[in-house]
Design a protein around this nucleic acid. Structure first.
Lengths: 265, 265
DNA sequence: CGCCACGTTGAGACCGGTCAAACCACGTGG
DNA sequence: CCACGTGGTTTGACCGGTCTCAACGTGGCG
């Protein structure tokens, strides 16, 4: 887990004097004008450092809590490495994994409106989180509109992603939901330029099931069926390592399961 | 529908010279410091007008499309009156109602990141939409951080609301989901200071079912059961008018259905 | 080794989907 | 005025996908 957490990444920022290349378009729009779904990648860390923002860096491990529902909202958190889940809890005690977050994602947007976080953020893996005070971040963004643009884009992506989850939850069968879950995971890796033929599910079956609105047994069965259909393959050691020879086969699998009377296999 | 759309509301803004009361707290935080879940209410329209932002006002009616998925993103839209649904469509044609929006909500946040809208926004009722160019809005917000704060709070609320939907979708039975749907609707009215003992569902059973991840028949059955349990009552004319004597009975109903082996009635 | 958490697989029950019929409100046109 | 068609809603009967419960397998660790 967490390849290449170089020691250099742990020392403090506040270096590299500002040298933002001028852009022809409005500064609060994304500087490099990438494709519609591409991930901003590495420009954000550089920008944060250029602004001289006081970041607090923190190494986290599996199970570490980054913030809890109800904690006073003061910071936004940039996930610099690792994987984090966000868990919502209703007043009557129901728990629900509502999001998975990868490198480059921001955490804590849901706390802005209510002045306190609305869910728990828990690390699923070794990783690193950069925390910035929200008010200093906004103060800096007022001087550097491109930073504001990146923030807005991140919030916008979060909203779009939540909607995609709802679509998946409401319109797909349990098996298809699992396939779609894998597809989304692969997509997240792809956008970050990581290898996509093999993924490590750092959640238990129970967590996956909770996220997808089904039981852990159904998740297990769905994965077994996908494996039997040769869409995925379990790596030799441990059933949390999944090989995905062709990611597009997952999509085909989902579409096939939409036709009535068609199971995965 | 749409009570009190005074003629005065249709004439153009750009009046009332700025006279923002100074606040003791940072300007990008919400000016009036209300409770954690209160709706900003009417301060936003005033602020938009103070900034002299060029708004385009548009009256909409049931079925009118405000924007479509794939349309180029240029504007954010403030729903000044009426009710709007947002509908996501997957590449393979599945449609999903992913949000309901009431007076004071912003529409179009999901278009910021990808430069085009990610879903359709369709009016469910007579109403009025104010459209502002996103870039002019941001330019204005850089001069008036309290406007930026309101925007961020709106995005934050949207994210929190989506998560609440996921929680409801994944953890509640069909009947409880319908009860929770009504509860949320009442809550939305409450936050806007409207009467909550009677609501008009301006969606068909099919739309409600789609939104809640169930069939229209199940919605109908759930409503019938709630009526039989005296938690709701259908008004004499039309089955889209629902009286809710005690909104808290809905919550009790949801909790009761969590205990195993307990249906609504 | 035993223990424990996690994962898999099977059998049966049940919730909610599917299909079908009937009802209702509303508008149109004879 | 009523006949008719239409779209939305309700209700019932049946079926199937998931959940529930249970047993078993597996890998890690003291």
């Amino acid at each position: 887990m967490l390849q290449a957490l170089a020691p250099a990444a742990v020392q403090h920022p506040c270096s590299s004097p500002s040298a933002a290349g001028s852009t022809t378009e409005a500064p609060w729009q994304r500087g490099s004008a990438p494709g519609p779904q591409e991930h901003p990648g590495t420009e954000l860390p550089r920008l944060l450092q250029q602004c001289g923002l006081p970041l607090r860096r923190r190494l986290v491990h599996d199970g570490d809590v980054i913030y809890r529902s109800g904690d006073a909202f003061t910071d936004l958190h940039l996930l610099h490495a690792g994987i984090v889940k966000t868990v919502a809890t209703s007043s009557d005690g129901r728990e629900q994994v509502v999001g998975l977050h990868f490198k480059g994602d921001w955490l804590g947007f849901d706390g802005i409106a209510g002045r306190c976080y609305g869910c728990d953020a828990v690390a699923l893996d070794t990783g690193e989180v950069w925390s910035v005070r929200y008010d200093t971040l906004i103060a800096a963004a007022l001087d550097r509109p491109e930073l504001l643009g990146l923030l807005h884009a991140a919030m916008s992506r979060e909203i779009a992603r939540d909607r995609a989850s709802m679509l998946s939850l409401c319109t797909l069968s349990a098996d298809a939901r699992v396939a779609d879950f894998l597809r989304q995971w692969v997509e997240a890796l792809e956008q970050r330029g990581l290898r996509t033929d093999r993924i490590t599910l750092c959640l238990s079956r129970a967590e996956i099931g909770n996220y997808l609105g089904m039981t852990l047994e159904s998740v297990s069965r769905a994965l077994s069926r996908l494996a039997k259909a040769r869409v995925i393959r379990f790596a030799e050691k441990g059933r949390r390592h999944v090989e995905i020879p062709d990611p597009r086969a997952l999509g085909a699998c989902i579409e096939r399961s939409l036709e009535p009377g068609t199971a995965v296999q």
